[in-house]
Design a protein around this nucleic acid. Sequence first.
DNA 1: GGATATAGGTTCCATATCGCAACCTAACAG
DNA 2: CTGTTAGGTTGCGATATGGAACCTATATCC
Lengths: 167, 167
Amino acid sequence: MPKRSPLPASCMLARSLELLGEWWTLLIVRDAFFGIRHFEGFQASLGIARNVLSTRLAKLVDAGILTRDTDAEDGRRIVYRLTDQGRALFPTIVALAQWGSRWLSRDGRLPYSFIERESGTPIPEVAVRAIDGRELGCRDIAFIEGPGMTEAIRRNLPGLILHEEAA
Amino acid sequence: MPKRSPLPASCMLARSLELLGEWWTLLIVRDAFFGIRHFEGFQASLGIARNVLSTRLAKLVDAGILTRDTDAEDGRRIVYRLTDQGRALFPTIVALAQWGSRWLSRDGRLPYSFIERESGTPIPEVAVRAIDGRELGCRDIAFIEGPGMTEAIRRNLPGLILHEEAA
DNA sequence: GGATATAGGTTCCATATCGCAACCTAACAG
DNA sequence: CTGTTAGGTTGCGATATGGAACCTATATCC
């Protein structure tokens, strides 16, 4: 993301994207899920410029998505680890990756796909579901105002219902 | 995303982000879910610069996420609509919004939350699940190579298992 | 202990992208 | 046929990126 957008906190999606929507950021988190822990590891895996990687890692640490510790066995090395908050991004990342493999594979030949480790069975696509497991579409959900609702936010919402078919 | 990254198609997440990771793009898709259909609508809702909105919409149309038609009743108006491919981003967007409300609300006072429209019951957080509905963590899944796997991609993957705890 | 290598950054510069405001064109309205 | 509206495009200054060089603190080697 280029510069600070003028969307303060109107939408929780906007708030998330303010942090994660910057180029490279989610890829760094993905690498952390892959088990990458060190600066040079991220750098080599992504080919990212070092100064940008530096600022991204600092922001992720600052936001509480990664921790930053010096390796006890080698004082030069810094160890970056996912926090619970970072691990909570797992569904988001899988959803994005699944969307990409479903819709962006040019010839339909996927490089890899997700399976359950124990059984080897494929993982179904991530979906929005009700408590009983029914899959929900965008027409099936609505908003309710919470205690943090403000007039500014309400003005930004076209309506409190997701109406994909509305005029 | 600033400039073209040197990640060709190594990861399906990277491919998705090449399209959606640009600043504003996912917010435009969100607005489309809200029912916004016209240029001025997006512009007013997001406060985005007109030239940027113009390029974003063109890219989304080009990628097959939105359609672009002239309004039959008013030849000036252009109608942008989500395609199936665009609607398939629903879980991603909800997952990101839920993550934001769970981890980024400063004082815990949410402006709004998702409920099921019919019953009014709250929507559980989006999760990665096995076929039988069990929730899966990053330790529970693995990759298998598909027909599109190449040596270049394999080199980029630290391993074919998501090993969050690995050294 | 001194030289060298390594990990993790920081600094500097050329370029690409964004925000903003002004301008432009095609279709409608009166 | 003059004015307005929708949907852009064009220039311009501010900002973030990519790339390479440089810097510092810790290990490692002899």
